[in-house]
């Protein structure tokens, strides 16, 4: 579904990603973890070319992603941000229907149907007409998830979706993500929620200092990390 080949990213003098390669299969849920500044988010953002790798290539369903086809391919890749990035001048319903209407040219009625279904799924039916600034962080993030899903993507990327939330709102967002994982969605999640990663992910990627130190099944990784760096990291966060 997603293949990243020798991804390197340089910002000025900093090499934040060093030669990362991996393949993510259809329906797989991958959690990317690691210390802050390790390049997790940058790697995730490379997957939909929001960040252009300095070298290496990304292919989605065997099609190489380029600046020319990236808008087309992104229709198939939803993304959820740490800071939600909802459109503040649009209501919840407008946020969710905008891209389907303007990008996929889906008729209004149909876009509304899809949006209402999704908002029901994330438990926000009563907030349709509210503006984002009237919502709590957890509600905003659930709207953001619904907005991304409205494009009916095959892949969903999550960039620390619960990091900006008050603790009591983390669960409502993680629950929505769990449901999504159970539907067979291909998901790549940058997260600090180790328990969530352990429970939901099929695979964990551990990044440190721009290097993919190890990857494997959560069970194996959390119980027997093979690298010192991973052991050290886990001893601090668990």
């Amino acid at each position: 579904m997603i293949s990243a080949t020798e991804i390197t990213k340089v910002f000025g003098k900093n090499t934040v990603l060093k030669n990362i390669s991996t393949t993510i299969n259809k329906g797989e849920v991958v959690a990317i973890i690691g210390p802050s500044g390790s390049g997790k988010s940058t790697f995730l953002r490379c997957l939909n070319l929001l960040e252009e790798p300095t070298s290496g290539e990304i292919a989605i369903k065997d099609v190489k992603m380029t600046n020319k086809n990236k808008l087309e391919i992104r229709k198939n890749i939803g993304m959820v941000f740490q800071q939600f990035n909802l459109f503040p001048h649009m209501t919840v319903l407008e946020n969710v229907t905008y891209a389907p209407r303007k990008v996929k040219n889906i008729p209004n009625d149909r876009a509304h149907e899809i949006a209402k279904e999704l908002l029901a799924k994330v438990g926000l039916t009563d907030k349709e007409d509210a503006y984002p600034n009237r919502l709590s962080g957890g509600q905003k993030q659930r709207v953001a998830i619904a907005r991304a899903l409205a494009m009916e993507p095959e892949i969903m990327l999550f960039d620390e979706p619960t990091s900006a939330l008050d603790p009591e709102m983390v669960k409502e967002v993680l629950d929505v993500m769990k449901d999504l994982a159970n539907t067979g969605m291909t998901m790549v999640i940058v997260t600090h929620e180790m328990n969530f990663a352990k429970e939901v992910a099929d695979r964990v990627m551990f990044l440190d200092d721009g290097v993919l130190m190890e990857e494997g099944e959560p069970e194996e990784f959390f119980n027997n990390p093979s690298t010192d760096r991973a052991q050290d990291f886990l001893s601090k966060v668990l």
């Binding site: 808008l71 229709k75 890749i77 993304m79 459109f87 905008y98 990008v103 991304a148 494009m151």
Partner: peptide
């Protein structure tokens, strides 16, 4: 305007 707005739009494939 918050840079995240552009990113959100780009991620949705908005031209």
């Amino acid at each position: 305007v918050d840079k995240g707005q552009i990113e959100a739009a780009e991620a949705l494939g908005v031209p």
